[in-house]
Each structure stands twice: as C-alpha cells, then as structure tokens.
Simulated scan of single mutants.
Amino acid sequence: MRVRPAGAAVLVAVVLTVSACGSSSGSGGAAATTTAAPLGSAASTLSSATSVASGGASSAVSAAAGAASSARSAISSAVVSATGADGATAAGAFDVCTILPFALAAQLSGQPYTQGTATSSDGLYGCAYDNADATVPGLNVTILPDESGDTWSAVHTGAVTDISGLGDKALWDNDNTLYAVKGHYVVQVNGDELTQAPAEALVKPVLAALP
C-alpha cells in the first residue's frame, strides 16, 4: 500500500515515540516500532520557527514553513511506522475498518478499494485501504489520542486551511491530509491522491464514532 509522497511522508530528524504522542498520505505490513522525539518537541520546534518568522525576514518565513511541514510529516510517519499486522486484535479501542468499511471508503473517496487492513500500536488505531494488487491510490485513516493537544498544535501551523463545521475543529494541510479533532482525539485522513472534499466525507463517520 502506498502512502504519502516522499516529500510529505519522510520524517526528518525529529522522530516520535508513539507512546509520547499523547494523542499526519501506513500500510498494514509487519509490525514495526517507531523511535522518535515526543510530539511536544515537534510542537516546540514549530513554535520557535514561527517566532523567528515573525521577524519578517523572507528566509525565516520559509524556514518556519519548512518546519511546519516537517512536523506534520513527523506525525504521519510515526503513524505509518507504528502500525502492525496484528491490528485486528490490537484495535480493541477503535476498529477503524469496522467504523469505516472498505466499501464505504470506496464510495466516499471514489476509489475502487476492495480491502481494509486494521493497524494499531500504542494507542494509535487505523485502517489502511487498498485493492488486492495495490494499483489504486492508497488511503489511511488513523485515530490518535491527543489529551494534551500537542498533536493538534504540531499540525496546525504553516500553510493550512481551517475547516469549519467538521468535528470540534479541522484543517486541510494542502498536502493530501486532513486532520479533525473531536474531544481528546485527532483523526488523520491521508492518501496518495486525496483531495479535500472526499477527505471531509471520509472523516465524518469516524468522528461520529468517537466519544
């Protein structure tokens, strides 16, 4: 299953410990363990970059935008590398493949998905959608606990588009990924060729299933 293009999904040096997510375009392959700095560090990095950018220098603004993109990519890559083949058993808290069956994901996205693979690890619960020969653009829907708000703070920066009327708050990051908040959870929807309208449709049944 394909995920976000390399420019958006490759993690820079900031790596997250999924257990530290507290809580942004993975496949249901063999279980993997992620090693990365806490989301708090990513948020702190973004805050510093934004502060520097406020000085008005064009180079600083570019640096801040790059930091924002990197932090969102860090979250996405952490989700990808945290998923495992045992998702159907581990996803006791949220079975995303049941909340959003592949047939419904296909209808809402306009892509001919024929399967959904449950993914889970350390509090992250998701579903990876594809067809048998992986010839359609891949789609990933993941629920991330976000008690402290660090995940939202990390992704809500840079050139994003805020969305009203979707969960408690939501954004489109203009890079094939939507984030929506409900309560203490952030739902991430990302795909290879995902656009905003189908992303909004896809996230709604997941938000409805959250407490």
Rank of each mutant, 00 (worst) to 15 (best):
P38W: 13
P38F: 12
G40Q: 15
S41F: 14
A42S: 10
A43S: 12
S44M: 10
L46V: 15
L46K: 11
L46A: 12
L46M: 12
S47D: 11
S47A: 15
S48A: 15
T50E: 15
S54W: 06
S54F: 10
S54C: 09
G56N: 09
G56I: 05
A57I: 03
S58H: 02
S58P: 05
A60P: 04
A60K: 08
V61E: 14
S62A: 15
A63S: 15
A65V: 10
A65H: 09
G66I: 08
A68L: 13
S69V: 09
S69D: 13
S70V: 14
R72E: 05
R72Q: 14
S73F: 03
A74V: 13
A74Y: 10
I75S: 10
I75N: 11
S76T: 12
A78K: 06
A78L: 13
A78R: 07
V80P: 02
A82K: 01
A82I: 03
A85G: 08
A85T: 07
D86Q: 13
D86H: 06
D86N: 15
G87R: 02
G87Y: 04
A88C: 05
A88G: 07
T89H: 06
A90N: 08
A90K: 08
G92I: 05
A93F: 10
F94N: 12
D95H: 12
V96A: 04
V96R: 05
C97H: 00
L100G: 02
F102K: 01
F102S: 02
A103F: 00
A103I: 00
L104R: 07
A106S: 15
Q107R: 06
S109I: 01
S109F: 00
G110R: 04
G110D: 08
Y113S: 02
T114E: 00
T114G: 00
Q115A: 05
Q115P: 01
G116R: 00
G116S: 12
A118N: 07
A118K: 08
T119V: 11
T119A: 13
S121N: 13
D122G: 11
G123I: 05
L124Q: 13
Y125K: 02
G126A: 15
G126Y: 03
G126V: 03
G126D: 07
G126R: 11
C127D: 01
C127F: 02
A128L: 09
Y129G: 01
Y129S: 04
A132M: 01
D133S: 15
A134M: 06
A134T: 10
A134N: 13
T135L: 08
T135M: 08
L139P: 04
N140P: 03
N140V: 14
N140Q: 12
V141T: 07
T142G: 06
